[in-house]
Design a protein around this nucleic acid. Sequence first.
DNA 1: TATGAATGAGGTTTCATTCAT
DNA 2: CATGAATGAAACCTCATTCAT
Lengths: 222, 222, 222, 222
Amino acid sequence: MVSYDASKNDRPVSSRGPSPARTARTREAILGAALDLFLDAGFDGVRMADVAARAGIAKGTLYLHFADKAALFEGVLRGVIAGPLAGLTEGVPAPGERVRDFLARMAGPVLRDMEGSRRAAVLRLVIAEGGRFPVLAETYHRLVVGPGAAAFRRLGRLALERGELRGDGLERFPQLLAGPVVLATLWNGLFTAEPRIDPEAMFLAWLDLVFGPPLPPEDRTG
Amino acid sequence: MVSYDASKNDRPVSSRGPSPARTARTREAILGAALDLFLDAGFDGVRMADVAARAGIAKGTLYLHFADKAALFEGVLRGVIAGPLAGLTEGVPAPGERVRDFLARMAGPVLRDMEGSRRAAVLRLVIAEGGRFPVLAETYHRLVVGPGAAAFRRLGRLALERGELRGDGLERFPQLLAGPVVLATLWNGLFTAEPRIDPEAMFLAWLDLVFGPPLPPEDRTG
Amino acid sequence: MVSYDASKNDRPVSSRGPSPARTARTREAILGAALDLFLDAGFDGVRMADVAARAGIAKGTLYLHFADKAALFEGVLRGVIAGPLAGLTEGVPAPGERVRDFLARMAGPVLRDMEGSRRAAVLRLVIAEGGRFPVLAETYHRLVVGPGAAAFRRLGRLALERGELRGDGLERFPQLLAGPVVLATLWNGLFTAEPRIDPEAMFLAWLDLVFGPPLPPEDRTG
Amino acid sequence: MVSYDASKNDRPVSSRGPSPARTARTREAILGAALDLFLDAGFDGVRMADVAARAGIAKGTLYLHFADKAALFEGVLRGVIAGPLAGLTEGVPAPGERVRDFLARMAGPVLRDMEGSRRAAVLRLVIAEGGRFPVLAETYHRLVVGPGAAAFRRLGRLALERGELRGDGLERFPQLLAGPVVLATLWNGLFTAEPRIDPEAMFLAWLDLVFGPPLPPEDRTG
DNA sequence: TATGAATGAGGTTTCATTCAT
DNA sequence: CATGAATGAAACCTCATTCAT
């Protein structure tokens, strides 16, 4: 008789029984696995079986932690949407610092590793699936876009008052400030055969166009 | 307004037998139905049965015109990617016309009806599915993005030479010019609960920031 | 507008209108194409579209000549089952000729080109599809197997009477005489990785076993 | 009698949850159902839905055990090809036993119930589908035909050395020994309107022709 | 007669979800 | 809590057959 259950004779590595610690660990494993897969393949491109396999658990276990695939998807993204941007929108120009220089200073860390961190992938995923998962778009708006726009609007007004800008466009359309990142991220995701765009370089070029070039060094001392 | 639903106004497409005219009408009916559905629900959100039903034909007929679902998807998009942008990138500033004014003049017609025409939806679809359908992204790049970038680059250089710009950013990153449209389109698609963004207004605000405000009327006469 | 009907502007090569000659030619074309394909791929492995394409006609035309796929299949085989065996079973040993030598003489031409002619393929096809197409098996029996068995039976009785055989087995089971051909044909069709079996050599070896070796040359003169 | 329908006697195989025993039973149910159907109707004549229905399981369950229909087909046949012939080719003539008598003694049990067991049906199926499923033919050759041919060849040589045969035909074409079984099996499968052929009787008749009749009783005592 | 676009029943396969163990 | 075999509703695609031209 062909025996296909040999593996089942070994005692399973992960034992059973309740345990808050183990439960939390399982949940983390699921979230981690699902994040990897969803970022890579989108909602439809991932099977629950894949998630379970990568998390090292059984398919059924997924449903102990998430009601269904959509809940898992949203749960996963909810967890990564906010994280990496914390603090981004709270800064304020240092006394005497031009808005332009403040922006250049703040943007660096964020734009520098858009791909390595997964901010780029998250952005692309939200864009791609936001239409079918309004919750996603709403969450993204509440946690990222909304606060960002508010902060940018304040900066736009400040820069206009200080005479650093030639129009009130940034106050009326604070989203414009996000243009370079969004463009670069989409470009890099879509046109893989083309040269990649460096988001930071693009943003700095944009700053030059909008605010004018940075002040030459001697001006700072004078 | 792009009209792909003509077939629905005529008598039903059905009936058999060879007939180039009828065949062409069937094909158009398929393309129209598929376009409507794909733009609305994305690749996975559409079933072949839906397309057939909306086109008023049998499922099998789809496969006489397209090898499989992916071919239909690509065929449909290939047909609408190019069309609406023809001529956009070929214009040249009139003698004595500032680059800024030229851009404002050209952009109007394109940006004014992004949603009504389906350019906005196409853009969103390419962005959402481009990752899984590289052909799509490539086609979009070849037909739209590439030529657009080349034209924008020339304009950027021209404006810089004429002293209309304060940096070479537009020459180095011609994509920046597309920022406002892309941002507005994505915004309107994702954040349906938020106030919509008018792409043209946003673009004009961007022009003010980058090129400075338009010359006041009295300057023209002087 | 994409034009997919350019080919239809050329006048079709085969003109229309009734004509007994043309009709017969069409029918032959169908039979030839169908035979090639059925012998190669079996009933289910052939599509009506394939037959039409190979015959150089339209799919619909097939149905003007054959009611359905099964009728075509049977019609095709009916046409080739009998042909190549005509005359095989009618011969009679020459005066003074041993049955064994008569068999060796008659078998040669038939066994020598089993594959090149398509007798081998026909045999295999009848065996493979006979279960699902009883008509086929019946026809084969009526035209080939039945007459063959009758002839073999007569030869078996004759040989027994003449003392050339050591039993009445061939009279009771005249099919035994076909054993070598059938075995060799099946073997060559099934075990393509193995060395092929030469049907004639196998038959002669069988003759030696059953009838004893051929008489040595000197016996003929004495 | 090969028993693959045991599952049908027990309570239905359904119900969920892990359980090696139940899993094995499901697998057996599938194999049994598939064997019945495939032997009866061939590969194309069986639908996966039929197999599932006869096995008393859901369609999807089939795919937990076999990757696709072809895998099921091959899996099923692999399981029955070898079984019934085990031991057939390992026997050796008893001391003083004529090869002829040894063959008659060994063949009886095998030939007696070709149809009731399903050896006949398996043989027919391998012949019919072997062309499209080379794996099948290879397996059959490896497990049945190859070993058989080797054993027959040894017997042929032995019989020749002992003077029981009048030629080396059986050594050169050991397949000849299988002729009667193959012929009878095919005949009975194809020509259902004709009188059936008893494989054993045919084989014994063949033995008489090739080896001469069995020794008369008085020879045994003498 | 000939055409070939159209039909649509039917087949295979997938995969989110359930639930007995 | 965890398991994973089982489920079954889809979804895609094929292809013999029809019939208006």
